[in-house]
Design a protein around this nucleic acid. Sequence first.
DNA 1: ATCATTGCAAACACTTTGCATACGC
DNA 2: GCGTATGCAAAGTGTTTGCAATGAT
Lengths: 155, 155
Amino acid sequence: MELSLQEICDALERVGIRPTQQRIEVMKYLSRHRVHPTAEMIYAELKAVIPTFSKTTVYNTLKLLEEKGVILALATDEDQIRYEANLNPHGHFKCVRCGVLNDLKIPALDSPGREVEGNLVLEYQVLAKGVCRQCRMADAQSRAENRGKNRRPKS
Amino acid sequence: MELSLQEICDALERVGIRPTQQRIEVMKYLSRHRVHPTAEMIYAELKAVIPTFSKTTVYNTLKLLEEKGVILALATDEDQIRYEANLNPHGHFKCVRCGVLNDLKIPALDSPGREVEGNLVLEYQVLAKGVCRQCRMADAQSRAENRGKNRRPKS
DNA sequence: ATCATTGCAAACACTTTGCATACGC
DNA sequence: GCGTATGCAAAGTGTTTGCAATGAT
């Protein structure tokens, strides 16, 4: 779901943000890379596109976009903030083994209670933690290979 | 659900952590203060109990307890990590107005799918964001007071 | 001309690390 | 006495801020 330049400019102007080159690049990056990038990741790649691009502008832009509701800042248990441009309600899955952070469809989120225990809920963030499919398959693989061999000590 | 000294020592020894005074104090604090404290909050109060208490020990202890699964580190969208000793599955509600972070009962969490989209889910963290009951009541109050008066500019 | 945006450098806040001291068995 | 726990100070990391230069209308 990479957004076109037109869609990006529309989204920005709709909330009163002037679509500068830097802001457009940040939006483009977020719509193209669905890995929930950190500010650092965005900076590293955009520095190549616009050599004068500064970290400050990345932070400024992400903050602005988040405040205007154009992108989301994710609650993770890491020290870095992760961002995404996918505003559809969905959860996230974090693999404790390899660290990937993927989108996760959570049926219950499609119809969240708007009011819970007297609180007005505006947004749900769901973070599931566990072992992703790839790592599980790798585990099964190595288990098969080690069958009959010495087990690795628990370290 | 403040834990007794005995319960705390049991919980620590069960996972092979020696129950030192500092560790016990951290556990006591966490079981008593259900506001999901930050390391800073714990340090500030325990400094009064044990004057030599150091920030390093707070961080060391929290990390150790988390690794051993005795406490949980919460994914929030803040820069600080918040901790809790309540291991029962539940969600959290963060008021975007006043900032409180409360426990939230989430029915769907009582029976989480163990396997979702091929991933093995070990833990769910749910963060609901919105306006808490207290703030909503305060809002209603001030709306009533301002009825007929000049509205504050949107500023 | 004015206001918004950008970007460097310095400041900041939270957390971790290095290492020396003190403690428990 | 030896390994673990503690605590100070310094370093590290991610983010924010102050401010000057640049750009847009």
